[in-house]
Write a protein that binds this DNA or RNA. Structure first.
Lengths: 149, 149
DNA sequence: ATCGAGTATCTTGCTGAGCGAGATAATACG
DNA sequence: CGTATTATCTCGCTCAGCAAGATACTCGAT
């Protein structure tokens, strides 16, 4: 066990943040009768839509680490709940393009918006040098986690 | 949709970090034939042990959001894998104190240690003012996520 | 001392997310 | 056209976690 230098406080803080954000997502899921995977799917779809991209069933499943059967059942579930629509691809009619329902987007924004707003507010309280430190630390941890074998 | 100021980059970075850390945990889980819940349990137990506290079955289940049946099956699973031991409470013999096996602790430290070390390293590259900004931002987000209704 | 209420854990039976294997349907290429 | 490839869906299954109830222990009151 390494002697706990002052850096460890921040490491634990980062873990606390990920735990709280996870719980926050779980609250959103439970409140809207969704499963964690459904929330991840919704977020992935909203990300894609913001980037102006389409998401097919298969691509979405791959992003979430599901196989084709699991993806089908995820889409069945979310379509049944009215959160997404299946639309056959126009070019390639084997594909199924997944469209997010407008109300699901609003639901997500209403829930996560305040938290995001609060984070932006916090960040505005720092000068550019401080923000650069925050940015650098987060990018560093992200890369370290992604690179670890 | 708010216009994406320079703060949003950091918000997305934070989300990327939580995603990557989640995937990292999942790799640990898969590599050791554990479920995500088992990893959360292991971490909770190690935290408790570091704080010099005992964890009973019920208390652990409550921390993980499981009911008593789920807790029993979690412990069955982890005991079968040799990661924990059940020990009847001495004072109150209804209780079951969960002890983490030394090898499970080492497994966890070996896996998460390098990442933690890298984070500490990154933090040492900042001066105290920058570290204070990182600390403040993380604490602020943690509190915001915890307080959101 | 023992009875009853309260508490901790385990047992039983079930639901449903996600997997593997294979079916079905559309496209691509000879 | 026919064969290979790709995208999705169907079927049958496993197993995590739930609800309800059983079991075992503690503690206060009488």
């Amino acid at each position: 066990m390494p002697s706990p230098g002052p850096e460890m406080e921040i490491v634990h803080l980062l873990r606390a943040v990920t735990v709280e954000l996870g719980l926050h997502s779980a609250r959103f899921a439970q409140r809207n009768a969704m499963h964690p995977t459904d929330v991840r799917a919704l977020i992935a779809l909203m990300d894609a839509s913001r980037a102006g991209e389409e998401r097919t069933a298969g691509r979405l499943g791959a992003e979430l680490g599901l196989n084709s059967a699991g993806t089908t059942s995820l889409l069945d579930r979310m379509e049944r709940a009215g959160h997404v629509r299946r639309v056959r691809g126009r070019e390639d009619r084997r594909k199924v393009v997944v469209e997010v329902d407008e109300r699901a987007v609003e639901l997500g924004q209403a829930f996560f918006g305040p938290l995001i707003g609060r984070a932006v507010e916090l960040l505005q309280g720092y000068d550019e040098g401080e923000r650069a430190a925050i940015r650098g630390f987060l990018a560093g941890v992200r890369d370290a986690a992604a690179e670890e074998v």
